[in-house]
Amino acid sequence: MEHAFVVVTNNPLVGKDLGEMKFVEGSYEDVLIKVRDLVYEGHQLISHPLGASMRMLFSPYRSVLVGAERSETSEVYALTIESSMDTFRRSTANRNVDHVNADDYARIDLELLKEAIKEHGIIQREKIQEVQ
């Protein structure tokens, strides 16, 4: 199993100390588009592109983990990112991005990203604690 990863993010709080990063100058949707492109280029989709609640879809920020290496494009990952983009667009069509609480979304996105990295089992707990 490939363990090396890249963080695709537009969250300014995400630092390079967490690992390799592709910073997206843009919106949550732009992050999803970048992830989609990487998945079609053959990168593994490590963390799910969507959060676990409606409220997190109104976040200005999102971080997603993809594999660092390329191989054949995976149908499972392609379907997951495509359906996630479709869900994102449908769910946010009538909604404003919640910029008022942007700082809090950035903090929570960072915390959830750290959990995803821990879950992926790549970097040790000590390293996570260093960046807290």
């Binding site: 676990a52 499972v76 997951t80 959990e115 879950e119 992926h120």
Partner: peptide, 9 residues
Amino acid sequence: PELTTLEGK
């Protein structure tokens, strides 16, 4: 548990 990573799921 509903986890974050696809491998976890």
